[in-house]
Deep mutational scan, measured.
Amino acid sequence: DIEITTNGEEDAKRVIKELQKRNLEYHIEVHGNQWVIKVR
């Protein structure tokens, strides 16, 4: 598993777009303004 910590929603959406392009499965956890994306 890979864990990507982003700085808020805009940053997270940019990362998610890339993950979707590669058809990767991911899970999002929001901790305040930090979005942690866990990639399987």
Results as ranks from 00 to 15, higher is better:
D1L: 14
D1P: 11
D1M: 14
D1V: 14
E3P: 03
E3N: 07
E3H: 11
E3S: 13
I4A: 01
I4G: 01
I4R: 02
T5S: 07
T5F: 14
T6Y: 05
T6M: 11
G8S: 15
G8Q: 06
E9V: 09
E9Q: 07
E10T: 07
E10Y: 08
D11I: 08
A12N: 02
A12P: 01
A12Q: 02
K13A: 12
K13H: 11
K13S: 08
K13G: 06
R14P: 03
R14A: 12
V15F: 07
V15T: 03
V15P: 00
V15W: 11
V15S: 01
V15K: 03
V15L: 09
V15G: 01
I16V: 08
I16Y: 02
K17M: 12
K17W: 11
K17S: 11
E18G: 04
L19E: 00
L19G: 00
L19H: 01
Q20S: 07
Q20W: 04
Q20V: 12
Q20N: 10
K21F: 10
K21T: 07
K21Q: 10
K21W: 07
K21S: 10
K21A: 12
R22S: 09
R22D: 06
R22Q: 14
R22E: 08
R22Y: 14
N23K: 12
N23I: 02
L24N: 02
Y26R: 00
Y26S: 01
Y26E: 00
Y26Q: 00
Y26I: 04
Y26P: 02
H27M: 12
H27C: 08
I28D: 00
I28F: 04
I28N: 00
I28E: 01
E29H: 06
E29Y: 09
E29I: 11
V30A: 04
V30M: 09
V30T: 06
V30E: 04
H31R: 15
H31S: 09
G32H: 05
G32N: 08
N33Q: 10
N33E: 11
Q34L: 14
Q34K: 14
Q34H: 11
Q34G: 04
V36W: 02
V36D: 01
I37A: 00
I37V: 04
I37T: 00
I37L: 03
K38M: 08
K38P: 00
R40E: 07
R40M: 13
R40Q: 11
